[in-house]
Amino acid sequence: MSDSDAGYVAHHNVAVISAQDKKTLDAIYKAAGTRALIWKRLDDTHAIVDPTRVSTLVRRLEDGGFSPDFSFDIL
């Protein structure tokens, strides 16, 4: 962290989860195992997630019946 008066704040190294629809991301939100790993919801279908615990997130999504995969670009 460094201080300046630029006003913008950069968060280096984040991961993003993209869901096909709002209902899917809502369901992921509600699951206790995945709630803690979601840092900030961006819109109905996207959220910033913990980049250091992606493998845990994948495991828990699979446990919750989702089939996550990796995408080079944000869908």
Partner: peptide, 15 residues
């Protein structure tokens, strides 16, 4: 139809 995860980003809050 499922969920995708993408890594390797910087998130910038634009005030």
């Amino acid at each position: 139809s499922a969920v995708s995860i993408s890594t390797g980003f910087v998130a910038v809050e634009l005030n």
